[in-house]
Every structure is written in structure tokens, then in C-alpha cells.
Design a binder for these strands. Structure first.
Lengths: 211, 211
DNA sequence: TTGAAAAACGGACCCGGGGTCCGTATCGTC
DNA sequence: GACGATACGGACCCCGGGTCCGTTTTTCAA
């Protein structure tokens, strides 16, 4: 599987060595922030210069790792069978998407954590977030009765934030399947609410904040 | 209002100078991470040593600022009148609480952002989060039909995350009241879903993740 | 095959920011 | 006013991300 065209083969080997080493390191170490770039370089048997030339900066490395790991799910979502694929009816697809995302973060806790917090500024500017949000939004839009699909998409995605997942699984020690069930239940609730009212909300109580 | 007992008055003056300076800086500067400790010290007319003795570390300063700002809301929630106070019926209090929190983050975007991301590890270990979560959880518990109040509380709080708020208001330029309305609507939906089923969810589709 | 230009390598180096240390200044008490 | 206790401040240390450049490897044309 030839990857980078017009790249020297030693460059490609380095790149892959780094990817593998970083993956291993993030999986092994407790906290993402004590995986240093020098560590990664050393573990990959490569100089720091090489590492930074290949990925630009720390965020670049994280992104590359993340995308690589996410690829199968992306495929399944874009062109796969039910319940992730495009042919799935919205009410079924939304929970499936969120469950898939949750599972991904459960399986790649440290990595997701590293990307979302250290990833150079807001996670909301990352294009992988953009992708999930756009997708989820458009699927939600096909469900009648939901108030604001853009915001709802944000809110649902927020329920799968890496640090929340880490907190639940790593600190509170909630078992994996329990978290999945809770999220599923929450999503169900949100979707079900659409059944009740045509277009709720609108006015909100008067409020005079301190500032 | 005498604050710290058994502290020398110059210490108190320094402490307050720092608090004020930091507050101003975080409000003025675009991104929280380009407010440096040295900046704060300089702006307060104080040495770095003083600053660190007073607050321990960066996270400590952020926490102190945050708590100070949050104090009025805390009061209103613990011993205040409706709709924030304890006498409010749950179905009404939950949206009020979340709206108050949202407003707070809208009014203190940079600060909340700084605390949540740079605040030394997971925001979920911070005791102010703990407080909100415990409170929200207990109020949710009084509403029959909601699946798992602990998780629901997390999920609702996640919808007010500082970086999401910042994204919506600062990037997408959604007007303040719109965001409030959207959140309100979302919360309404979540609460309403309890009306439908006694104890939903439970089983979740089989899934074999990559790892 | 070869030789030279292009591309990649690697680690010494730089820089900026969080946090510490300790000699000096201030406070508070007797 | 003198002395112990406390706070001050900024020079200093450390560590991690990112850069630079002399050296090595690859590639390709002659």
C-alpha cells in the first residue's frame, strides 16, 4: 500500500516508525502530557528534527494518529452498511453514530484526551470535529420536531468528550457497557423529545448577570 | 469584608492586587494562554515570588478568580429565591441552574476557558465541577422517569463547556440570547423525555471495536 | 557505474514559561 | 526601637516544544 508519493522511502519508514512508537507510548503512559516529543523520537529511534519535519508540530502528530485510528469508522459511516451507513433511518443512525464515537474514545482514551486538550487551541476548530458535527447535524435535521439541530449536535457530541469519558471510566470506574447504555439512553431521550412539541422554547427568563 | 485571618496586611493587599490584575488581563487578552504568570505579576506590580506564594500555582490563581466570580451565583443557588434557590420545583430549577451557569460562562469566557483547559488536568476533578454535578444530580433525581441522573447531569453540564460556549459565541457568532434559548430548549427536551417511558434503554447493539 | 543535486537525518541548540530560592524589606509585637 | 516572624521580588533553574545546520542517504541522469 504505497502512501506518500514523491517521498523518499526512508522518510516514509521514519514516518511510520514514529506513528507506531507514538501510538504505543500514548497507550502505555498514564497521562498524555507526560509523553514528550523527545520520548516519541527516542522510542521511534529517530531524531527530533525528523519527527518535526514529518508532522509539523505536536498537534500534527496527534492529528495524524487520530485520523489513522478513525479511518475504519469513517469508512463505515460514509459507505458502510447499517446501522452506521447512510442508508440507516435517522432515528436509528444517530444513536449508532454516537455509540461508535463513544466506543472509539473508550478504545483510544489517552489519544483522544491528548488531542482534545493539548491539541493546540479549541477542539472545535479541528476538522474532524467539524466532520462529526456536520454529519450529525444533517442526520438530526431529518428528524422532525427537534428544535435546533446544530446546537443539539454540539450538545450530543459534548456528551462524548474525551475527558468526560476518561473521568467516568478511569476515575469513577463505570464499566464500559454501562457508559454506553447511559449514553444510548440519554440520546434516546433527546430524540424522543421531538415527538412532543412542534417548536418549543424561544423565550427565556430575564436575567441580569453580574458583569 | 476582612478575608484572610492571620495574614499580614501587605500580603492581603498583594493578593487582591494580583486578583484584580489577573481579572483585567484575562478579560483583555484574546486567548488565556498568552496571559503569562510574569504578565500577571508585572500588571499587579508584584514579584513572581509573591504571586506564587499567594496562590501556589497557575491553577490556584485561576481557581481563586473563578470562585470569587462565582460567589454570587453560589449564594443565589444555595440560599436564594426562585428560580435558582432550593425552594424551586425541580422541573423549573434545572433549566434555571443551567442558564445561570451558561450566563456565567458567557460573562467570563476567557476565565472559564483558562480554567477548564489549562487548569491542571481534567476539569472533572475540580471541586467546583463536583459541586455543580452533585447539585444538578440531586435535583434531577427528584424528577421521576429520568434514566440515570448522574450521567444526565454530566451530559447537561457538558453542553455548557467553556470551549463550546467560546466556539459558538466567539467563532460562529451566535448571539448570546440565541445560545441561551438553544440550551433552554435542549434542556426542556431532555427533561420532557422522562414523561414518556419509565426506564428506557438498557440493551445496546453489539459492537466489536477495532482495538 | 558514478557523481552530484535533492531530500532527509539527528541532535545540539534556542526560547519562553512555570515554578523555586534566598537575601532583603516590611510588619507587628513587646 | 529592637527583634522575630512574615512577606517581598527577581535572578535563577528546569523542562519541553520547536529550529538549525553540518552530515548522510537517496535518487537520477549521464
Amino acid at each position: 500500500m504505497p502512501e506518500r508519493r514523491s517521498s523518499r522511502k526512508d522518510a516514509i519508514r521514519s514516518r511510520e516508525a514514529v506513528l507506531a512508537a507514538a501510538d504505543a507510548l500514548f497507550a502505555r503512559r498514564e497521562s498524555p502530557e507526560d509523553v514528550t516529543m523527545a520520548d516519541v523520537a527516542a522510542a521511534a529511534g529517530v531524531g527530533k528534527g525528523t519527527l518535526f519535519r514529518a508532522f509539523g508540530d505536536r498537534a500534527g502528530l496527534l492529528r495524524a494518529l487520530y485520523e489513522a485510528r478513525l479511518e475504519p469508522i469513517r469508512q463505515a459511516v460514509e459507505t458502510g452498511p447499517q446501522p452506521l451507513g447512510p442508508a440507516t433511518p435517522p432515528r436509528e443512525r444517530v444513536p449508532a453514530l454516537l455509540d461508535a464515537l463513544l466506543c472509539f474514545k473508550l478504545d483510544n482514551r489517552r489519544l483522544a484526551l491528548a488531542l482534545e486538550e493539548g491539541g493546540g487551541g479549541s477542539p472545535y476548530r479541528a476538522e474532524h470535529y467539524e466532520r462529526w458535527h456536520t454529519l450529525l447535524r444533517s442526520v438530526l435535521e431529518q428528524i422532525p420536531g427537534l428544535p435546533d439541530s446544530a446546537f443539539t449536535a454540539h450538545a450530543l457530541l459534548a456528551a462524548t468528550r474525551a475527558d468526560l469519558v476518561e473521568h467516568l471510566v478511569g476515575e469513577v470506574r463505570v464499566p464500559r457497557d454501562r457508559v454506553r447504555a447511559q449514553l444510548a439512553s440519554f440520546v434516546t431521550g433527546v430524540l424522543a423529545s421531538g415527538r412532543l412539541h412542534g417548536s418549543p422554547a424561544g423565550e427565556v427568563a430575564e436575567k441580569k448577570p453580574s458583569s
